[in-house]
């Protein structure tokens, strides 16, 4: 456990040494700002309605770009060898990297509060759904980051990691979305697995423990699989 913070600090610092973090954050803010303005005009209402869905979509595209390097780069450059032969546990490495990427994700999402500020200046927004949405965004971030982290630990090619990460997240999203169009246990399962449904209730101002548990447990499961995958080097 002691090394989690050491890994975390290095990873976070390295994000700011490379242009990727700045590029991703700028792209995200420009795109979401654009859609915020569009949605505002469309709904004519002081809320983040619509904007949040587009924000979610950009996060889905951009989070794997944040996470793509986490393991792939180390495997490719060989630094994984120095890292894994120093006295750190696999969990420390995985969790430290997870926290660093999640922090960057939060850094990326937080400036969207400007939109909220904007709403309060020109209107009278209902803060309930806004707060709950941000709780949802962060929980969802944990899930997205852990998907990207797992994918990054499976390949040494960063581009492949990003692409597979994006595809996985889209599938996870679409699966939940499709569940709207049917009944029965199958659609019920899809609905549970997919992120869409869980996310939706946050945007309505509901923080349901079941949704919180869904995000946390799914994230934990993915982190667990990643640790096992990193470990697998040792018994292959």
């Amino acid at each position: 456990m002691r090394n989690v913070s050491t890994i975390f600090q290095r990873e976070l610092a390295s994000y700011f040494f490379s242009p990727i973090a700045y590029v991703v954050i700028s792209v995200f803010l420009i795109a979401s700002g654009f859609f915020f303005a569009g949605n505002l005009q469309f709904w004519q209402e002081a809320s983040l309605k619509g904007s949040l869905d587009s924000i979610q979509f950009f996060l889905l595209l951009l989070t794997p770009v944040i996470t793509m390097k986490l393991f792939a780069e180390e495997t490719k450059s060989g630094t994984i060898e120095t890292l894994m032969t120093s006295p750190v546990s696999d969990f420390d490495v995985v969790f430290g990297k997870f926290l660093a990427a999640l922090s960057l994700y939060i850094v990326m999402v937080l400036p969207t509060w400007i939109f909220v500020l904007f709403l309060t200046i020109f209107g009278n927004p209902d803060f309930g759904p806004i707060f709950s949405s941000y709780i949802g965004l962060i929980l969802m971030g944990g899930l997205f980051v852990s998907v990207g982290l797992l994918v990054s630990s499976l390949t040494k090619n960063q581009v492949v990691a990003a692409v597979i990460g994006i595809v996985s997240l889209i599938i996870l999203w679409v699966v939940g979305f499709l569940s709207k169009y049917g009944e029965g246990w199958f659609y019920e399962t899809l609905r549970y697995i997919g992120t869409y449904d869980h996310w939706e209730s946050f945007t309505k101002g509901i923080v349901d423990t079941r949704d919180v548990i869904y995000y946390l447990s799914f994230t934990a499961l993915l982190l667990f699989i990643t640790v096992r995958n990193v470990e697998s080097r040792k018994w292959r």
Partner: peptide, 15 residues
Amino acid sequence: QIGYLPENVPLYLDM
């Protein structure tokens, strides 16, 4: 207990 210098000396090149 060990200090290891791997073959190609991988380093974090941004530090």
